[in-house]
């Protein structure tokens, strides 16, 4: 058995870019059971074949190219493949077929509370999250103070995070994720939470980041925000690109489509 390596090369022209070429992605659905050895043996003995029945293709031959400077909004209903698209770009899901090429440093803002260890203190979590995002302890030391200050949690840094309120957790995670350097920003919904003061501060920082990143890909259900932030919109429907282009017209089409569907329901 040989292996094929992903390649890492220095990008020469300094232009960020994302390119998906012929990307297909197949998922297995485990509707009511986790995979088990017992089940596999039983299937082999009884010559049953369950595996193909529970597979489905999210993307088939998806082509997408995002250039330096673009702010792309991804819209579509739940399960259309918006978050998964971000995860494919990020490199969490290796596509079943096709290639993904990414030029630039990625900052993911996707369900980041997952990286927290609530038994640890806020301070320790800053370093844990930082390392998961690819930063060294040294780099995080320089940023930790600012992160805590922005999250307004300086007084609680030493407290285990299980005693944090949901809003405090969100504030810390937001501050960490937006406090690391990036060239490409992948955002999944805006997860700012907390009191009105923090939300307005977070929104400001979000706009700053959108301005300073080379590329922004923003998956959201908040159509008005998508319209405001982006220069290009992709409408996904069951893993297919239905429309790609001008934000205003596509967002209007999408809303009209959703409204029509709503209306046709009894």
């Amino acid at each position: 058995m040989s292996i094929v390596c992903d390649t890492y090369e220095p990008a020469t022209n300094g232009q960020a870019g994302i390119e998906l070429a012929g990307v297909s992605l197949r998922f297995r659905r485990y509707a009511d059971q986790t995979p088990s050895f017992r089940q596999t043996i039983l299937n082999a003995v009884l010559r049953r074949n369950y595996s193909s029945a529970s597979e489905f293709w999210l993307y088939r031959d998806l082509n997408l190219s995002i250039a330096h400077g673009e702010r792309v909004g991804v819209i579509g209903r739940n399960g259309a493949g918006k978050t998964t698209l971000l995860k494919v770009i990020l490199g969490i899901y290796t596509p079943t077929a096709g290639r993904v090429r990414v030029r630039g440093l990625i900052a993911p803002l996707i369900e980041l509370t997952a990286g927290l260890n609530i038994e640890l203190s806020g301070w320790e979590n800053i370093f844990l999250m930082g390392s998961l995002l690819g930063l060294s302890t040294e780099q995080m030391k320089q940023r930790a103070g600012d992160i805590l200050r922005f999250a307004e949690l300086e007084d609680f840094a030493g407290m285990p995070m299980k005693y944090f309120s949901a809003g405090m957790k969100m504030r810390l995670v937001f501050s960490i994720a937006t406090g690391v350097p990036n060239e490409i920003m992948l955002m999944d919904e805006v997860f700012a939470a907390g009191d009105a003061g923090f939300i307005s501060k977070a929104t400001d920082r979000m706009h700053e980041l959108v301005d300073s990143s080379h590329i922004v890909v923003f998956a959201s259900h908040n159509i008005s925000l998508v319209k405001k932030l982006t220069t290009r919109v992709i409408w996904l429907e069951r893993g297919r690109i239905v429309a790609d282009g001008d934000p205003a017209s596509i967002c209007d089409d999408y809303l009209a489509h959703m409204a029509a569907e709503q209306g046709s329901r009894p």
Partner: peptide
């Protein structure tokens, strides 16, 4: 700035066969 190319699983499976150079590169990358 770095360029990363992720190759799909299908292509990875097609290229089977023992290539010491590919393994050496894989170990180095890891």
């Amino acid at each position: 700035m770095e360029e990363r190319t992720t190759i799909g699983l299908a292509e990875r499976r097609r290229r089977r066969g023992l290539h010491p150079a590919a393994w050496a590169q894989a170990v180095r990358d890891d």
